[in-house]
């Protein structure tokens, strides 16, 4: 299995083999990355926008620049929601994550989908929902998918505060431009995902914080300190992070925490594939048929939803999406 190349025939044989391998564990090894495939990335079509040269560097203003005004209050609230979502936006979330788990340094860190860079590229057309989205609509998506919750209504204080914070961070940056550090880095496409290697990397580099079972860890007072990466308390099957390419880019640039850019591309791809080959809450767009949800919203080389890995058909037995009934 280890030598599946990008040749389509070998690839097809590989899929058959994987299917035949059925209930065998991760030890069966790898999952080929489809040679040519348009990836439905959950990010805006930033490709069309002017790219700023790599060496230009934008620095968002510091907290001390938050004005002492009504607007400043909204910025501060947005920042509080952003780094302590659990305690400041409880009614809209359905897992144990914080916005700042995937957008480090409270949304400031480049290559960790910083808020200031995201602010500049909206409104934008998104294939995910087929229309031009405002920045607030984009934030709604984060609540529904990444936070496995429910979208605050447009104009809700929560969204206005988050938008205020993003706007504040983006001060002086050119709108309609993709700045260096926007989104997550895009790693060169691999020939295959090696789950066995991913599992190995996970146990060596990730399990210390996120736990061998991917469930994260809490401090004695019950606060989640290390976020869950799969299972019922993590992001759901509609989240951007459930696409292996996003996860790999984030991991490469930022993990192990405080040691970004120390993994090889291969390690980042394999461990991202390993993480995204585990069960998580259902895709909120699921209406009862796994096959239909997969056909309409999934597919592509970086999305394992609806495929069978290590004997588990992903998405088949997911817990329902959304906050647990109170």
């Amino acid at each position: 299995m280890s030598d599946i190349a990008s040749d389509p025939k070998t690839w097809f044989a590989g899929v058959l083999f994987l299917a035949a391998a059925g209930f065998a564990g991760y030890s069966i090894g790898s999952y080929p990355v489809e040679p040519v495939k348009v990836v439905t990335a959950p990010q805006p079509a930033t490709g069309a926008l002017p790219q700023t040269p790599k060496d230009s560097k934008f620095s968002p203003p510091g907290d001390d620049k938050i004005p002492d005004s009504e607007f400043g209050k909204s910025v501060r609230l947005g920042q509080a929601i952003f780094y302590d979502t659990q305690n400041n936006a409880e009614e809209f979330i359905g897992n144990s994550l914080q916005c700042s788990n995937c957008h480090l340094d409270k949304g400031r860190q480049p290559d960790s989908a910083p808020l200031w860079a995201a602010y500049l590229v909206y409104p934008a057309y998104r294939a995910k929902n087929g229309h031009v989205n405002t920045f607030q609509e984009r934030l709604q998506g984060c609540f529904e998918y990444s936070m496995n919750g429910k979208a605050p209504p447009l104009g809700d204080k929560t969204l206005v505060a988050l938008e205020s914070y993003a706007y504040f961070l983006a001060k002086g940056a050119p709108t309609g431009t993709v700045l260096p550090g926007q989104g997550y880095p895009k790693l060169p496409r691999p020939d295959k995902f090696d789950f066995a290697n991913g599992k190995e990397v996970y146990s060596q580099k990730c399990a210390l914080c996120h736990g061998a079972d991917g469930a994260g860890q809490q401090s004695p007072d019950g606060q989640t300190v290390f976020p869950p990466l799969w299972g019922p308390k993590s992001y759901n099957w509609g989240a951007g992070m459930s696409s292996i390419n996003n996860a790999a880019g984030f991991i490469k640039a930022n993990m192990p925490f405080s040691q970004g850019n120390t993994l090889t591309d291969k390690q980042a791809w394999d461990v991202a594939a390993y993480i995204d080959s585990h069960e998580r809450p259902q895709d909120p767009r699921f209406k009862g048929s796994l096959a239909e949800t997969q056909k309409e919203h999934h597919g592509g080389a970086y999305d394992l939803y609806g495929t069978t890995v290590g004997g588990v058909t992903l998405g088949k037995d997911s817990v329902p999406s959304g906050p647990l009934p109170q």
Binding site: Q217, S219, D221, Q223, V225, F257, S258, G260
Partner: peptide, 20 residues
């Protein structure tokens, strides 16, 4: 962060309570 240094509390928990 511009020195690549996260807050200590991101590993040692708020108020330094520790984790696991």
């Amino acid at each position: 962060w511009n020195k690549g240094l996260p807050g200590c509390s991101q590993c040692h928990a708020k108020l330094g309570l520790g984790v696991g």
